[in-house]
Design a protein around this nucleic acid. Structure first.
Length: 327
DNA sequence: CCAGACGTTGTT
DNA sequence: GTCTGG
DNA sequence: CCAGACGTTGTT
DNA sequence: GTCTGG
């Protein structure tokens, strides 16, 4: 699933990545880059206007349906994810499927693995820190004073093989520009297309490493959030050849730790820099080295080669007739 | 017709 | 708002 | 999602 | 364990 994320892009990078002119970003002033954010935080979201032009809007993570009572206390945690498999059936989400689709721009997200008696957080991202685009749905709600609040939810799907070791659910990651276009495109999505878009991201450029448990606190904002954690037990976290990260364990067969290469600090630093440096559109780089043996799951080097493509807000919502998701 | 709900996770 | 249940 | 709190009574 | 807060 996906309950914590990172969006450290600065505003220019957001504009560049979204391919949107600066004057088409509503509420840009409300977005602040953060290494550690969760529901209730605001991030840049891409959507289409009525003419089909792309635009950005800073929205709050955690869907608050438009019909939420004005006096009700807002809960951004209740609907920060939506199961893509059941979205078409759930009234709260299906009404948004036809005209309120959006794309969430993130550097990556966090998942916690139960290791022994503790929870070890992992930062999950794309090679070269390419921006991750997730499928979302949004809605707008008006408070008693007439102020608009626009919120979104991130769709989830089954985890890909690559990520199953840490969770059985993962966010819906749009693999390429074509998928993003299809998701954002105005109008109805047929169910087949919808299902295809929501399939688990299977690119072998999905990477991860463990990070400090300090970031488990929602308000911890240090850059360590996206720095590989050095742990004795995982000396071989990095490949000998200073390439990308972790050896790929098929999580299961790890137990056999053979020649473990001690972690070189510099390598760790480089990898951390690579992941942390915000290269909006850095070309994907490959983890050329294969095999590694680790007790800690690391990104797989192989896998079938696949996808790898690359406080108040104002807004006038017209009561759209939400006709969507037609067979 | 009106009333009431509308969600995902993980864990047990 | 929209769907389900009574 | 994780972290942190979770209570009453009586007395000063 | 379970609820609240961020």
């Amino acid at each position: 699933m996906c309950g914590r994320a990172r969006c450290a892009l600065d505003r220019d990078q957001v504009l560049a990545v979204a391919g949107v002119p600066a004057d088409r970003w509503r509420d840009y002033e409300f977005f602040l880059p953060k290494h550690n954010l969760g529901p209730g935080s605001r991030t840049p979201i891409v959507r289409r206007d009525e003419e089909g032009g792309a635009e950005l809007q800073t929205m709050t993570w955690g869907l608050v349906p438009s019909w939420t009572k004005k006096e009700e206390k807002l809960d951004f945690f209740r609907m920060f994810n939506a199961r893509s498999e059941t979205v078409p059936e759930k009234t709260v989400f299906s009404r948004l499927l036809g005209s309120k689709r959006c794309v969430v721009l993130l550097n990556g997200f966090y998942e916690w693995a139960q290791e022994h008696k503790t929870k070890q957080p992992y930062y999950i991202y794309l090679d070269g820190d390419r921006v991750m685009r997730m499928a979302g749905l949004y809605d707008s709600w008006q408070d008693a004073e007439g102020n608009w609040l626009t919120t979104y939810t991130i769709l989830t799907t089954d985890s890909s093989k690559r990520l199953q070791w840490i969770h059985d659910r993962m966010p819906v990651i749009l693999p390429d520009a074509q998928a993003e276009e299809a998701w954002l495109q105005n109008g109805v999505l047929d169910s087949k297309q919808y299902t295809a878009l929501c399939s688990p991201y299977n690119g072998d450029d999905l990477q991860w490493f463990p990070v400090t448990t300090a970031m488990s606190k929602p308000d911890f904002q240090g850059p360590e959030c996206c720095k590989p954690l050095k742990r004795q037990s995982i000396a071989t976290f990095f490949k000998p050849k200073n390439t990308a990260l972790a050896p790929e364990p098929e999580a299961e067969k790890l137990q056999t730790s053979e020649a473990s290469t001690p972690l070189k600090n510099e390598e760790g630093a480089d990898a951390a820099k690579a992941a942390c440096s915000v290269k909006a559109e850095a070309p994907p780089y490959h983890a050329d080295t294969k095999d590694t043996q680790e007790a800690i799951p690391g990104p797989a080097a192989s896998q079938q080669g696949t996808v790898s493509a690359s406080k108040r807000q104002r807004q006038e919502e017209k009561p759209d007739k939400d006709r969507y998701y037609v067979q």
